[in-house]
Each structure stands twice: as structure tokens, then as C-alpha cells.
Simulated scan of single mutants.
Amino acid sequence: MAETIKQPNSNRPLVLIGLLVTQLLALVSILLIWLPGAFISVVAENPEGTVPLWLMAFYGYPIYPLAMSIGAWVAYARRNDKLAAILSALLIPPILLFVVVIFLNW
């Protein structure tokens, strides 16, 4: 019986580069846009002391990139490169939306 020889995954370095680039973009969006906005948005509280829903969503933004990054690295460590690439790619749309909304309202 012929044995099948596993070929090394030639896409693995590309997936690693993709992971690093998308996470660098997420880090930049958090440090340069979200963090200053979080400090400034403290003044957006209502006089009653309640926080608007959009502000709570804004404060929760870093949770999404963190969850996707952890999931992507776990998938990459388990050699599931396709899932790692998908989870890494899911970081891009919210970052773009976040940047567009911030700069359109500037």
C-alpha cells in the first residue's frame, strides 16, 4: 500500500505575516484612535450620570480585536492556517469602519 507523504504547508509564512500585519493595525487603531477617544469621551456623559449606548459600544471596542487575535493565534498554533487567516481577516472590517466613522465625524 502506498503511503501518502504530507507536503509542508507553503502558505504558513504568509498566514504568519497576515497575523502580524492585522494585529499591528488593530494595535494602532486602539492606541492612536480608541485610547484618546476614550479619555475625551468622558465628557459625553449625560447630566444624569448615565452613559449613552454608543459610548458603551465605543468602550467595548478593544474586546473584539483581542478575542479575534487570541483565536487566530490558537488556530495558528494548532496548524489550522485557514481558520487563523479567517479570524485574522475578521479584524480588518471593524478597524476600517472604526477609522472611517471617527474621521467622518472629526
Rank of each mutant, 00 (worst) to 15 (best):
G49P: 01
P52F: 05
T50N: 11
P62F: 06
K6F: 15
N9F: 14
V51M: 14
K82D: 02
P94L: 00
L96N: 13
T4G: 00
I95N: 11
M1Y: 15
L35E: 01
V74C: 03
F58Y: 08
I95Q: 15
L19V: 01
K82C: 02
P36S: 02
A26Y: 10
V74T: 12
M56A: 07
K6N: 00
A84Y: 03
Q7G: 02
I63E: 01
I40Q: 10
L20S: 11
L90N: 10
I40M: 13
L104P: 13
I17Q: 12
V100W: 11
L96C: 13
A77K: 14
Y76D: 01
I102Q: 11
Y59Q: 07
Y59F: 13
W54P: 04
L31P: 13
A77H: 12
K82A: 03
L97C: 15
L14C: 01
T50V: 06
A38H: 03
T22S: 12
I33W: 07
G37Q: 07
I70H: 06
P47C: 09
L27V: 02
L14D: 10
R78L: 04
L20D: 04
Y64T: 00
L20C: 12
L19I: 08
N11H: 14
L31Q: 01
P36F: 04
A67N: 04
N11K: 15
N11G: 13
E48Y: 10
L25P: 07
P47M: 00
L27R: 06
N46A: 08
M68N: 02
W73Q: 09
L14Y: 07
